[in-house]
Simulated scan of single mutants.
Amino acid sequence: MKPIHNVQPQTILPSQLTRPAGTAQSHESFANLFLEGFSRVNEMQQHADRAVEQLQTGGDVNPSEVLIAVQKADVEFKLMMQVRNKMLQAYQEIKDIRI
């Protein structure tokens, strides 16, 4: 068994930290991931709105494709809401931790 040395956290350099095999290093911030997700949901909802508008105005669009676009936008929005709810729940749990 190796002895445990008294190492202070500030002495560990980021280059000394290792990642598990098979994971790629990403320089994206946590906030950027959420912003990309929100913009993707927004794009899908706008696409679905345009498809519905074309269907209502008699445009050359397949009704089944419109339904699929609307359903995809709905599923993406519900997923985004669930992620938001889980993040708020985690925040509340962290906030309630007594020190």
Rank of each mutant, 00 (worst) to 15 (best):
P14W: 09
Q45F: 00
V70G: 00
M81E: 13
A48Y: 00
D96S: 13
G22D: 15
G59K: 12
I4Y: 15
P9T: 03
T23E: 04
D60G: 10
A73P: 01
Q46R: 05
Q54W: 05
F30S: 12
V70K: 03
I68N: 05
V83K: 14
L79K: 09
I4M: 08
N62D: 12
K72E: 10
T11Y: 11
L35H: 14
K95F: 12
G58A: 11
A31P: 03
V66A: 01
D49N: 13
M80A: 06
E76Y: 09
V83W: 11
S64M: 06
D96G: 11
S29F: 08
L17Q: 06
R19H: 13
K2A: 04
A31Q: 11
R40I: 02
E76N: 15
A73N: 09
I12T: 04
T23D: 08
F30G: 03
N42L: 10
T57H: 06
D49Q: 11
Q89V: 02
E65Q: 12
K78W: 14
V52A: 02
I97K: 10
P20K: 03
D96L: 15
Q92I: 15
L33W: 14
V83H: 03
G59N: 09
G37Y: 00
Q16R: 01
L67G: 05
N32L: 14
P63K: 00
H5N: 09
S39L: 03
F30V: 14
A90Q: 09
A69T: 01
A21L: 07
E53K: 08
D96T: 04
P9R: 06
E76S: 12
V83E: 06
R50A: 10
I97F: 13
E43H: 07
Q56G: 04
F38G: 13
R19T: 03
R84T: 02
E28N: 02
P20T: 03
E93F: 05
K78F: 11
N62Q: 15
F77L: 14
N42M: 05
L35D: 12
G37W: 00
N42W: 10
P14S: 06
N42S: 09
L55T: 02
Q89N: 11
R98W: 04
L55A: 10
Q16H: 14
G37T: 02
A21R: 13
F38M: 09
E43P: 00
L13T: 06
A51G: 03
R19W: 06
R84V: 05
Y91W: 06
E65T: 05
V75G: 03
L55Y: 02
E43W: 02
T11M: 07
F34H: 11
L17A: 10
V83C: 14
Q10V: 14
P3C: 01
A51Y: 00
Q71N: 13
L79C: 04
F38V: 08
A51N: 00
H47K: 15
A48F: 00
S26Y: 07
Y91V: 09
I12M: 03
K95H: 09
T18V: 08
E93Y: 03
Q45E: 07
R98C: 08
L35R: 08
A69Y: 00
Q25C: 08
Q71M: 10
M44N: 06
R19V: 10
L79H: 10
M80R: 04
F77D: 01
F38H: 10
F77R: 02
E65P: 00
